[in-house]
């Protein structure tokens, strides 16, 4: 197949950046989009040009490294599919593909298609865990968890932290990501003791980073490669409201947001 890739090229945060078209004459439909970029980069290197920077690691849709906007859609047109798992057979000869980075204030650009997503780690750091130190655990079967509950928790725990939800949201909100962790842990009996504190801390951190507010548009869940359901946001809001009511005097202090850190 012959395709044109229009790729956002930007040396660094201070550079202006622009789309640059690249014509690819020999695209195999079995290739993934990332393999297509590999092939392009090989030719760019041999032509003495700077290859396109993009993030990737597992190439199996699980590590959450990859991700850019393809023709206006985060991770591209296939539902439930990361960029690394998107094969070229979904495009046809002569197509033009536009590739651009996640655009969100909370994700400052690093180079070309690579952005800084540390803000997501900060949200977890603020309270996305169950406080149990190594050695403190009771026997695994002392805590019974019904299958439906375990399944519901697992559905939310499947989030890969890619940031597509933020990129897809017109407000650049991280509500789906944060709600997914709050639901994963809050659904389980193990997570119950810290449920309110967790919601308060994580939401406070989310607000402190440069993410926008959720206005229930739902673009996040449509773009999410793991199809995390919108309910997780409702769960987050419920836990947050209950907690703010009951723990008014106990509001956490967020850590400095990513955009202000070196």
């Amino acid at each position: 197949m012959k395709l044109t890739l229009k790729i956002w090229r930007q040396k660094n945060r201070n550079d202006k950046g622009a789309f640059v078209p690249y014509v690819m004459n020999d695209v195999d439909p079995e290739m993934s989009v990332l393999e297509c970029l590999d092939v392009l980069n090989e030719t760019l290197i041999l032509r003495g040009e700077v290859p396109v920077a993009f993030e990737h690691d597992c190439r199996e849709g699980i590590c959450g490294s990859c991700g850019f906007v393809i023709n206006g859609v985060a991770h591209g047109p296939e539902r439930g599919t990361t960029a690394c798992q998107l094969t070229m057979r979904h495009f046809k000869d002569g197509d033009e593909l536009t590739l651009e980075p996640w655009r969100a204030k909370a994700f400052p650009l690093i180079k070309d298609l690579v952005v800084d997503r540390r803000a997501l780690d900060h949200i977890i750091e603020a309270g996305g865990y169950i406080s149990v130190s190594t050695g403190q655990a009771p026997d695994g079967n002392d805590i019974l968890v019904g299958k439906e509950i375990a399944d519901e928790s697992m559905d939310a725990a499947a989030c890969i932290g890619c940031g597509a939800c933020v990129a897809a949201c017109p407000n650049a909100s991280a509500a789906l990501f944060t709600g997914a962790k709050i639901t994963h842990l809050g659904t389980l009996p193990q997570g119950e003791p810290e449920r309110e504190r967790r919601a308060l801390s994580m939401v406070a951190q989310m607000n402190a980073e440069a993410f926008g507010n959720c206005t229930s548009i739902g673009e996040c869940t449509a773009a999410c490669p793991k199809e995390i359901p919108l309910e997780v946001i409702a769960n987050m809001n419920r836990d947050y409201v209950c907690a703010s009511f009951r723990r008014r005097d106990d509001l956490p202090t967020p850590v400095p947001p990513a955009v202000h850190r070196a």
Binding site: L144, I149, H184, Q190
Partner: peptide, 23 residues
Amino acid sequence: SGKIIDQCVAQGVPFAREYGGSL
């Protein structure tokens, strides 16, 4: 090996369960 499972369960790893709630 057994302690690992205990630790991970306590952290909230959603291992597969039987209907009765056991691992």
